[in-house]
């Protein structure tokens, strides 16, 4: 018994402290260093912010270069794939056409809805009036089961601040959660950590759109007993003072989820709204 405990102790000590022929550092040394860096970064010590910003900017550029072959291959093979997918695409386009026809018929309804929304938000602001936007390129959109975020090539140098809304065309896709000098991280609406106030339907129902970690965020804090109908347009309510009111986000499903207008995995260029200067603490 004692011998087996000794064996465990020796093997464990050896694993922690011993350095192999080609090893420059022992595991225990690296674990301690990692622990110190983790604590310094987690507790947000002042000097860590610029250090992290420099590391981030450097690594994001390397990632962009390293990932270029993986972007090129899908582009090169895309033509062949498209050829095989013509029929599928045709069906999809027909369905989309059907949706547009339906939308055309509902113009009157949408006009009324728009009027109602303007009353609800009680503001003359509109996303259409926003001109203070900068276009930025998506550097990295690494998919992960943990976080749904993208890296863009605009940072504090271009006036990007934490909390600023980010759009794809006219659709809201997320907000800036981390800024470096030359790059920023955008938390997407479908991330588990994302929560934004929204409004939808003719009655201007207020709700919180919560990221689910999957492709479709969920509507929460709805009025008691409210049943979500399918096909309602969801807009930002602007109640948080971060997002300007009336930005289109997506369309409701009968499960109480929102099908986003903008596909987060297909982003190439996005717009950051610089007019929203509210800094948010994350």
């Amino acid at each position: 018994m004692s011998s087996s405990r000794d064996d465990f102790g020796i093997a464990f000590r050896s694993a922690l402290l011993q350095r192999g022929a080609a090893q420059k550092f022992s595991l225990v040394f690296l674990i301690i260093i990692a622990g110190i860096i983790f604590v310094l970064d987690s507790y947000g010590f002042g000097f860590m912010k610029p250090v992290r910003a420099i590391i981030n900017d450097g690594i994001y550029r390397v990632t962009l270069v390293v990932s270029s072959p993986t972007r090129f291959v899908p582009q090169a093979t895309g033509g062949i794939t498209n050829l095989f997918n013509v029929k599928k695409e045709n069906e999809k386009l027909k369905k989309e056409l059907e949706v547009y026809r339906q939308k055309e018929l509902n113009v009157k309804f949408l006009t009324n809805q728009n009027k109602n929304l303007r009353k609800i938000i009680d503001s003359e602001e509109s996303y259409l009036k926003q001109e203070n936007m900068i276009l930025s390129k998506v550097l990295i959109d690494k998919s992960s089961p943990y976080l749904k975020s993208i890296i863009i090539n605009r940072g504090s140098k271009s006036g990007v601040l934490k909390g600023m809304p980010v759009m794809d065309k006219d659709f809201l896709i997320g907000r800036v959660v981390e800024t470096n000098y030359l790059s920023s991280r955008v938390l997407l609406l479908n991330d588990l950590n994302s929560r934004i106030p929204v409004t939808f339907g003719e009655d201007g129902v207020q709700a919180i759109l919560k990221g689910s970690g999957g492709s479709r965020p969920i509507l929460e804090y709805l009025p008691e007993g409210y049943i979500v109908e399918e096909g309602k347009d969801v807009f930002t309510s602007g109640k948080d003072g971060i997002f300007f009111p009336g930005s289109p986000i997506g369309i409701t499903t009968e499960k109480g989820e929102v099908r986003l207008y903008s596909e987060s995995s297909q982003l190439s260029f996005v717009k950051v709204d610089l007019s929203q200067k509210n800094k948010e603490v994350f």
Binding site: G20, A22, F25, S26, G35, I37, F38, D41, Y146, E178
Partner: peptide, 29 residues
């Protein structure tokens, strides 16, 4: 182990954290 040194494992984790947006060195640990 001589092919994959612990230092490299540490740095790979650090890079992963930066790319993924996690606190530094959490993946290293």
């Amino acid at each position: 182990p001589e092919i994959l040194g612990s230092g490299h494992v540490f740095f790979a984790g650090l890079i992963n954290d930066v790319v993924m947006g996690f606190p530094l060195c959490i993946s290293s640990l």
